[in-house]
């Protein structure tokens, strides 16, 4: 269920960014497409971080062996 955790983290980050923009520019909040775009970007970033961590862990394990 890691994908749901990643998605959850991405959604939380998107909500934070959306609110930040909303309070800074209340006349032009992020639209639906823009919000989805931000969500996709965050999801990709979270996935990348997870992959990087996995890669680091496996290389450390290989070093130890």
């Amino acid at each position: 269920m890691k994908w749901s955790l990643d998605l959850g983290i991405s959604v939380v980050l998107t909500v934070i960014v959306w609110s930040g923009f909303y309070f800074t520019f209340p006349n032009e909040p992020l639209g639906a497409v823009e919000t989805v775009f931000v969500l996709v970007v965050f999801y990709a970033l979270v996935k990348l971080v997870r992959l990087a961590k996995k890669h680091l862990a496996s290389s450390e394990k290989a070093n130890l062996e």
């Binding site: 800074t24 639209g31 497409v33 823009e34 775009f37 931000v38």
Partner: peptide, 19 residues
């Protein structure tokens, strides 16, 4: 604030391409 506006504009431009 200016950085936020620049970021907001970039998101809009990129999201348009995404759409």
């Amino acid at each position: 604030r200016r950085f936020a506006l620049t970021l907001r504009t970039k998101i809009s431009v990129l999201a348009e391409g995404f759409a």
